[in-house]
Nucleic acid binder design. Structure first.
Lengths: 326, 326
DNA sequence: CTGTTAGCGCCTTCAG
DNA sequence: CTGAAGGCGCTAACAG
């Protein structure tokens, strides 16, 4: 019932090695016999067994993708980028969610190793020694995507988060804001968020800044927290760490009787589809989400082919898209 | 360098067969020797090779997931549901995007077959004979997810779209609407959308209905189209086929100088996170997105274990979440 | 240019 | 309860 390479060989009256050759282009095969093989393949409806192939060649052409949560808009966009480029290079992806739980993440690296993936693309909030250790013991090429390795030991693709934070802050100051707030998950949980926060603070020496910490980073949690901060600190400019938090900020201002952008200006990170579907449309620090994925995957293919890589830690460009919230 | 089952066997002074047994629980092993094996495994840091295992057992414990586009909020949520349950049953998922292109979809079914996936979960707009033929030739268990098979030949998980359309329409009529519009991609492209449209029309015998066709189903495309329809037909109630189209409808009304819900009421399908983060918050026909994925995957595990299945075409419940847009 | 021969790492009878 | 032996379907030298 399952047709194997042997069946094809017999049908084409050649050896299985020859079939393998035309299948993989491993060596030159005479035009005529090649045609016989191809005909036999078509006739029998033969499909090479990727598992057997993986066992024999020790390369599975599948790469593991570990993310906190695909259902987050940002992540989903990144995954799309990864998958598109993977397809282009004839790879498949095994997708797993870690919920950013360290234990689960380390465990996943282990299962990816069992699955014999050729490489891993990794997204998380904070890279810990445990992760690095797991990568090393698994001996699999890894590319960090939108996650920072403070020590730059592992290939990665990022934007310059510190600079982006600075750009956001300066942008608001240029617009006339005097008291800025940064809304994100609490400090110490995300290297990326903390970098941005430092950037925001660095945009101008003597401006008062407050950081509004939203435990889960979600809209409904943020709403009351931003509202409180608003009245407590007389804020007139907000940098939000995500579109979701940006929207919460805008609504918090409105709920407090203020106007956006007249009284308070809001700029948010990400630029997911939502940013231009809400009113006022949100000004954002656009992140190249799709490219995070695409470039990471491209970098990984180079690593896998031992191609020369000019830069192991790629920095993508961010840019401000000015809309109605500022 | 790679430690195999043989290394473990030697270390534990047993045969590889015994190691395999304690690994898989295939047969009873004496407590004592079992401990020796476990110790050896820990000592050597042994990890079973899933590829070799797959070749020998003919089961890979991976399932193929074919979706139009993960970066769509609805799909991402479904995928999350699939992955969670897959993890629970110790399966992994290979994720691929088809962009709803028939050719690519059929091709993907083929590659999934090459990858020896144990099963497939499939999302698309319209199930064609080509798909069914591909499934049959691949001989792999398939579950359709949020995808209707008019002839119900293939196991599937859906809501009752016709009824949901009817519910949406009736809901608006009960709220006093007199002229309804249904906004979606053009007819004939999606079985699901067409079902809902029929449902909307069926909610009341003699009410005028118009269908507003948005070629790509996107926000920016919809905006002007809905605006035109609004002035042309005096519409006072809109059923949108997705949250994105719902938002576009709301904004189209506002741009025409109208108020939502005072002048025009809007109810949308889906209930993605966005629905409750916009203003006015959107009333929706909530779809159990996560459950679509979770239930599909659960059903697939039953199929794979030849467990008895009481119902091959599962119908999940939808429900109206009343918010501010109606 | 083509055929032969070993494995890849594991599961799974079949004996004992 | 445990060991030996034969594949699973394919790749990759090595001959010819």
């Amino acid at each position: 019932m399952t047709v194997t390479i042997y069946d094809v060989a017999r049908e084409a009256k050649v050896s299985m090695a020859t079939v393998s050759r035309v299948l993989n282009g491993t060596a030159v095969v005479k035009e005529e016999t090649k045609k016989r093989v191809l005909d036999a393949i078509a006739l029998l409806g033969y499909r090479p067994n990727a598992v057997a192939r993986g066992l024999a060649s020790k390369r599975t052409r599948t790469i593991g993708v570990i993310v906190p949560d695909v259902s987050a808009a940002f992540v989903a966009e990144v995954v799309r980028g990864i998958e598109d480029i993977a397809t282009m290079y004839e790879y498949h992806i095994i997708l797993t969610n870690s919920d950013a739980q360290v234990e689960r993440e380390v465990d996943l690296i282990g299962t990816m190793w069992e699955k014999q993936v050729d490489g891993i693309i990794y997204l998380t909030n904070a890279l810990l020694p445990e992760h690095v250790a797991a990568f090393e013991s698994a001996q699999i090429p890894v590319v960090l995507c939108a996650t920072e390795d403070p020590e730059r030991r592992i290939p990665s693709v990022n934007i310059d988060n510190r600079q982006a934070g600075r750009d956001a802050g300066r942008y608001l100051l240029d617009k006339g804001c005097r008291r800025l707030a940064f809304v994100s998950i609490p400090g110490g949980q995300s290297v990326v968020a903390d970098r941005r926060w430092h950037g925001v603070q660095g945009c101008e020496g003597n401006t008062p800044f407050v950081r509004i910490a939203v435990p889960d980073g979600r809209y409904h949690t943020a709403l009351p927290l931003v509202r409180e901060a608003l009245t407590a600190h007389g804020i007139d400019g907000i940098v939000a760490d995500s579109d979701e938090l940006g929207l919460a900020s805008i609504h918090a201002v409105q709920d407090s009787g203020g106007q956006v952008p007249a009284d308070v200006k809001v700029i948010a990170f990400d630029n997911t589809r939502m940013a231009e579907m809400v009113r006022p449309e949100m000004t954002v620090i656009a992140q190249p989400m799709y490219d995070f994925g695409a470039v990471s995957m491209r970098l990984l293919t180079k690593l896998l082919k031992d191609e020369p890589v000019e830069n192991y830690s790629v920095t993508l460009l961010h840019n401000i898209v000015e809309r109605q919230s500022t």
